[in-house]
Simulated assay, not measured.
Amino acid sequence: MTKLEQLLSQYAAYHLDHKNVLTHFIGIPMIVFSIMCLTARAGFFVSGFEITLALILLVFSVIYYFSLDKAFGLLMLVIYAIAYPFAYKIAQLGMGAWLTISIGTFVVGWVFQFVGHFYEKKKPAFVDDLVGLAIGPLFVLAEAVFLLGFRKDIQAKMLEEARQQRRAMDEKSLQTAHAK
């Protein structure tokens, strides 16, 4: 199993309910975009070009995604390249508008996340492993790619492993409940 399949499987173990996955299609992009907006305001200029904290975070995340899978890394690069100029424009707004849009988007995104986990009846993956915060956007991208009929081999391995991990989590929860 590749590192990509392992990470997607760990994340998917918390996301096997289709309603939960659907809420993540809305919530995760909103959260990522809001973080872009919030961090695009801090920056410095090099040769007339502004290097923002958002841009630095995006570069590092794309490098990480490329290290896991070239195709997913490229797709994430394209998505970020499209989203970043909009986030940068929002970051240039007045303080009140910038914070209202950025924080409002962040909060609404998390509401979607928690509604999804209500259906799943499982806590978010990042509670057990902070890597889940970085894998969440990649998971949503992978799910979209799977829905389009591509990378089915990865999806099959991911789901098989995720279901095994989920069974182990559920058994552990039952054992803990019986011990109380």
Rank of each mutant, 00 (worst) to 15 (best):
K3R: 12
L4Q: 00
L4W: 00
Q6I: 04
Q6W: 01
Q6V: 01
Q6G: 01
L7W: 05
S9G: 11
Q10W: 11
Q10S: 13
Y11A: 04
Y11L: 02
A13M: 06
H15S: 13
H18P: 13
K19S: 07
N20T: 06
V21S: 03
V21F: 01
H24A: 05
F25A: 06
F25Q: 02
I26S: 08
I28C: 03
P29G: 03
V32L: 11
F33K: 03
F33I: 06
F33R: 10
I35G: 03
C37G: 05
C37N: 07
L38V: 10
A40E: 03
A40S: 12
R41K: 15
A42Y: 15
G43A: 06
F44R: 04
F44I: 02
F45P: 00
V46P: 04
S47Q: 14
G48C: 03
F49D: 00
E50Y: 00
T52N: 04
A54L: 08
L55Y: 07
L57K: 08
L57T: 07
L58V: 11
V59L: 14
V59F: 14
F60N: 11
Y65T: 00
Y65M: 00
S67Q: 12
S67N: 10
L68H: 03
D69N: 14
A71D: 04
L74R: 08
L75M: 15
L75R: 12
M76H: 14
M76Y: 15
M76F: 12
M76N: 08
I79N: 10
A81G: 15
I82E: 10
I82F: 10
A83L: 11
Y84W: 15
Y84E: 11
Y88S: 05
Q92R: 07
L93K: 03
M95E: 12
L99I: 06
L99W: 12
I103Y: 14
I103T: 11
T105Q: 05
V107S: 13
V107P: 07
V111G: 06
F112V: 05
V115L: 14
G116H: 01
G116S: 08
H117C: 01
H117I: 01
F118N: 13
E120M: 04
K121Q: 14
P124E: 01
V127M: 15
D128H: 12
G132M: 05
G132A: 09
L133W: 04
A134K: 08
A134V: 13
I135E: 03
P137L: 02
L138W: 01
V140S: 01
A142Y: 03
E143V: 04
L148K: 07
G149E: 08
K152L: 02
I154L: 03
Q155A: 15
E160W: 02
A162D: 10
Q164I: 11
Q164Y: 12
Q165P: 02
Q165K: 14
R167Y: 11
A168C: 06
M169V: 06
M169L: 12
D170Q: 12
K172Y: 09
T176V: 14
A177V: 07
A177Q: 04
H178I: 14
H178N: 15
